[in-house]
Amino acid sequence: MARWGMVIDLAKCTACQACVVACQAENNVPCVEPEEAERGRILSWLAVVAEVQGSYPRVSMTTRPLPCMHCDSPPCIRVCPVQATGITPEGIVRQTFARCIGCRYCTNACPYTRRMFNWYRPEFRGELQLALNPDVTVRPKGVVEKCTLCHHRLMQAKESVRAEGRPLAEGDYVPACVEICPAGAMYFGDLEDPESRVAQLVRSPRAFRYLEELGTEPKVIFLSQGEWAGGKQEPR
């Protein structure tokens, strides 16, 4: 059984937010009107979050694309009173939109603030509705939604490899955010498969998990920025 995970190399991330838009377009996440955005009603399954430290001119800023961490020990699924969210055998923290009662306990329990709530009926003005992806349900108002690691793509990939009569290979299933990353800073694959790229990267000394001290055991793993090693001469 695969255990899907993502590696985000912060050294390569340019904070361009292509992943954010790719996610939004792929998953029919509505763009809320400016007034609502102003009130903090933004829906983003994946956000690039910046943190500024220090004061001028000794300032540093870290930027981090934050999808759902797909924790192995997710605080959100424990608190859901109706089992609307759970973890699939392949490690994807899923949300059953049709069962969610909208109590928003999970949104509050998630230390990463990665669960979003449909404050209104989703609105796609005018022709914008034409751009909706038929593979993903448009969520009704009043339910919680979240990153599914583009679960529909996994389904499609499984179907197509079944048709081809072969097992799922690396690269068959990749979420929209990873696929689009212009700097190639995001990797995706099976953490259980020791040969997969992600499994190799996870072993890197640069690898860390965000807020891992909370014991959530995220399957989204970050690689730290690293630094320029100084003007070393070319190795002979």
């Binding site: 377009a25 914008l128 212009p182 700097a183 190639g184």
Partner: peptide, 29 residues
């Protein structure tokens, strides 16, 4: 319904910036 990068294009090799992805909202604005 979705814009992605052309993996063969030498400029972007399948990657895109958020602007490119937003082309859909220009079309259906």
């Amino acid at each position: 319904v979705k814009i992605q990068g052309n993996p063969l294009h030498p400029v972007n090799r399948g990657g895109l910036c958020p602007r490119g992805l937003a082309g859909l909202q220009v079309l259906y604005h």
